[in-house]
């Protein structure tokens, strides 16, 4: 199995610190429309958070702001010790991304490459990462690490297949392996089951639960499937019109909370 316990030395020091602290976070792409209107959020290590809300409420934007893919417009954001005001410095973004795995709604694999090369791509950003371009030039320990990540998602036997030869569910599992290969402390997933059939969707969510729950990785995912949100998260955060509507343990989320989130 993949040794996800091997984490950077500063892990112990930061173990008690929140993984994410956002205060009054705002984001707008132009002056007319504000996507995030003052989001307050704190996530502790090992939590599994579901971010819910209707289309356009700012879920995906929030996730991308957290890792500096989109710079925030205002407020304070500390993610894994990196200060991300204005998108953070280049060094801070790099440091943050090396500790973070990101799984997109569409698996976003490089389809003409092998499954193994796609997983090794997860090591881009590490020192000497130009060798992460392809499994054929990657150092042997990286190849081994990628195979272990594939084994963790039960796809080690598909390592040498082209990515576009796999089913949608399998491709999403490869994307998870790509995120895991960097041994992340935080795993962010943007509607990871949305493009999958119900069975594949549950398999992917089961995988997240077992990998993150077992290894203490903090998981933050968005979902339109309330069953996924309530079954797989320890806490549910609802966004509405760019603000946090409620933030409570998944066991205490009521039907009226959901109605207010999506219809109210």
């Amino acid at each position: 199995m993949l040794d996800l316990q091997t984490a950077p030395p500063e892990t112990a020091q930061l173990a008690v610190a929140p993984v994410i602290t956002a205060r009054g976070l705002t984001k707008s792409y132009d002056r007319r429309s504000m996507i995030l209107r003052g989001v307050d959020l704190q996530i502790q290590p090992g939590e599994r958070i579901a971010l819910i809300g209707s289309n356009g409420c700012g879920k995906s934007t929030l996730l991308k702001c957290l890792i500096g893919l989109h710079p925030i417009s205002g407020g304070e954001l500390d993610c894994l010790g990196a200060q991300m005001q204005g998108g953070g410095s280049r060094a801070e973004r790099q440091h943050l991304r090396q500790q973070t795995g990101f799984v997109f709604q569409k698996h976003c694999l490089v389809r003409r490459r092998t499954v193994l090369s796609n997983v090794i791509h997860g090591l881009f950003g590490a020192p000497g990462s130009w060798r992460a371009f392809s499994h054929s030039i990657a150092p042997e320990p990286w190849r081994q690490r990628a195979l272990e990540a594939l084994d963790a998602v039960n796809l080690a036997d598909k390592a040498m297949m082209r990515a576009d030869a796999l089913s949608g569910g399998q491709q999403q599992r490869v994307a998870i392996a790509r995120a895991l290969v960097r041994r992340p402390r935080l795993l962010i997933a943007d509607e990871p089951a949305a493009s999958l059939d119900p069975v594949s969707g549950r398999n992917v969510m089961d995988l997240f639960q077992s990998l993150c729950g077992g290894q203490g990785i903090t998981l933050l995912f968005t979902s339109h499937d309330m069953k996924h949100a309530l079954d797989y998260a320890t806490r549910v955060v609802a966004l509405k019109q760019g603000r946090v509507l409620f933030d409570k343990p998944s066991g205490r989320v009521s039907q009226s909370d959901l109605n207010e989130t999506f219809h109210g």
Partner: peptide, 24 residues
């Protein structure tokens, strides 16, 4: 999409080109 995924991982411009754009 693959380019954005590689950027999210921390890949620089050259890595995005070589790892994501050229194979595609």
């Amino acid at each position: 999409e693959p380019q954005e995924a590689l950027r999210a991982i921390g890949a620089n411009r050259a890595s995005v080109l070589v790892g994501g754009v050229l194979p595609d």
